[in-house]
Each structure stands twice: as structure tokens, then as C-alpha cells.
Simulated scan of single mutants.
Amino acid sequence: MDPRLAQIYDGERRMGDRNTVLRGIKPTDFSHIRKLASQFMARKPTGGSGDNRSSTNISNNPSLALNQKPARRPDPIILLSPSASSLLRMSNAKAFLEGGRYTPPDHSTPPTMLAVSRIIKDMDPNRPIRFILVEGPENFKPEYWNRVVAVFTTGQAWQFKSYKWTNPVELFKHVQGVYLGWRGEQPPESVRAFGHKVLACSVEKWRDPGQPGAEQSRWRDREVVESIWKAVEANMRARGWRKDAAPTSI
């Protein structure tokens, strides 16, 4: 060989094969990677090459979480009046709205939150919808207001001071209002001034169960409850509540 050419060859960088380039001179055992990857590979759906390509793209993209579950529809919220004069409080709301029977509120320490269930056939005929009952929005996050479907009121304006809409007329443009009073008594003038979106309904005055005919006077309670739910459900449908979705704004 020409001495000059041999000198040039000696100055070249020598290229190795795949073992020396990727693993060095000593072969490396990557079998432990199989154990780490097995939990991900087991979740990969079986199918054609299209399914394999889709799974590969997901596993290679850290921004796509594995086993993502569809978002659950949030529970609608009903606000009760915190007024001591309200006929419906946390202590008797469940028996009335879910059981269809009115009993007067007691003076025990009430829970801060209740849940009642109701089948709404237009939305989900097979599974009851859970409604959350609270007396005030003090612990509300801003987005919770999109879940409010009804507000019970006695007509006292101070109830709305901490609401998103402090003006009751504006409030009841967005939310169904309910006033519950005694049968034979007119709703307060303030309630009538709130507008037609406040449903005024009444129950028979409470009588001691030991009195003759007391229980027979309660047969209309369920009729009143059904009229309340009918108004609430109509408002929900108008606002965009569906089987698997809730409105993003009311």
C-alpha cells in the first residue's frame, strides 16, 4: 500500500457494528425492561395493525393518561332557605322531597348537606339522579352555580346576599324558585314580586298525629311534591341537563 494512503487511513475514525455503537463492547441485558413494560403492554387492545399503531402512539405520548374514564355528570344542587320561618329545612326536606310527606322541621343540629334521589324519565329512566341539598352557598366554588336547579325561599331578601345573583328577580331568571306555605294563606307580596319563575305551593297545616283525621290531611303532600319536581325538571331540561351532561353556564 502506498505509505501516504496508509497514513490517511490511520487518521480516520473507525466505525463499529451495532453492538459496539449501541451497547459497547459488552452486550447489555435489557430483559428487566420487559417487566416494566408488561403492565402497559397488557392494556394494549388486540386487533389489527391500526389498533397497534394507535396503542403505540398513546404509550409514547405522556400527555395522554392511561385508562381515562369519561367525565361523570355532576349532581344538581337545590338551595333551601336558611330562615327559621321556612317550612322546609334540612331536618325535614328529605322526607318531603323524597318521601312525599310533610313533617315540621325539628330543632336538632341539622346536617350541612343532604342527598335526595329522583327518577327523571326524560333524562335517565333506569337510574335515579342524585340532588344535593344545602342551605347556603358559603362553600361554593364559582362553577357550582351552574349546578343549581332550584332555590326555596320565604321571600326574605337577605337570603340572597351571598348568592351569585343578589337581586332575586335576576336570580329567578336563571334558577327555578319555590315558595312553600300553608294552605289557605297567601304568599308574601315579596314572593309575588319575584316573578312567575317562583312556584308558590302550599301544604295542609300541621296537626298533631294524635288528633282525629290528622293523617288523612296529609294525602295532598305528595301532590304538592310532584308539582315542585315537575317545575324543577322543566327548568333542568331548558338549561341543558342531560343523562350524561350538565350545563356549563346558566
Rank of each mutant, 00 (worst) to 15 (best):
P125M: 04
Q156A: 08
K26E: 15
E12W: 12
G11E: 11
D208Y: 01
L5N: 10
Q211F: 03
Y102I: 04
P45N: 06
R101Y: 10
I129M: 14
L36S: 12
R207V: 07
P45E: 05
W145H: 03
R53Y: 15
N57W: 10
R192G: 01
M236W: 02
P209K: 07
V148D: 03
E12K: 07
I228Y: 02
G136A: 07
P111Y: 04
E226R: 13
T109C: 08
A231T: 08
S117A: 10
H174I: 03
P247W: 06
R222Y: 05
L171F: 04
G213R: 00
K121E: 15
V21H: 07
G48R: 08
A37K: 11
R130Y: 09
T109I: 12
M1P: 09
S85W: 02
G210K: 05
L133A: 00
E12S: 08
G136D: 13
I119K: 12
T46S: 12
V169L: 12
P76A: 07
F140T: 05
Y144R: 04
I78V: 13
P62D: 11
S59T: 14
K173I: 10
G50Q: 14
H174A: 11
S162T: 07
L22H: 13
M1S: 14
L114K: 07
R73I: 10
M1F: 11
D17H: 14
R23F: 15
G195Q: 02
Q176R: 13
L180V: 10
Y102S: 04
K69T: 15
S117H: 09
K161T: 11
R72T: 13
I250R: 12
L180A: 02
H174P: 05
F194W: 07
N52R: 12
P62L: 11
K26T: 15
Q159I: 04
P3Y: 12
L79T: 00
R192K: 14
I78W: 02
E143C: 03
A150E: 04
S59K: 09
Y144N: 07
Q159T: 02
R72S: 15
I25Q: 10
I119L: 13
D51Q: 13
N92I: 01
R242P: 02
D75G: 10
T20F: 10
S249C: 07
K161M: 06
A42E: 15
T154K: 00
R130Q: 14
G24A: 09
G11Q: 15
Y102G: 00
T103A: 06
G240K: 06
D208E: 03
L133N: 00
D122C: 06
S31H: 08
L114P: 01
I8K: 11
P128Q: 10
R127Q: 12
A246E: 13
F152R: 00
S59L: 15
P128D: 04
D17C: 14
V224N: 01
S54D: 07
G50E: 11
E204V: 05
V232A: 06
R23H: 13
G155N: 00
R53F: 12
R239K: 11
S83K: 06
K197N: 14
L171P: 02
L79M: 06
K26L: 13
D122K: 12
G48D: 15
R130V: 13
P74R: 02
S81F: 01
L133D: 00
E226Y: 00
A246Y: 02
S31T: 15
V225D: 00
I120T: 05
S227K: 14
F152I: 01
R222C: 13
P247M: 07
E138F: 01
F172L: 04
V203P: 00
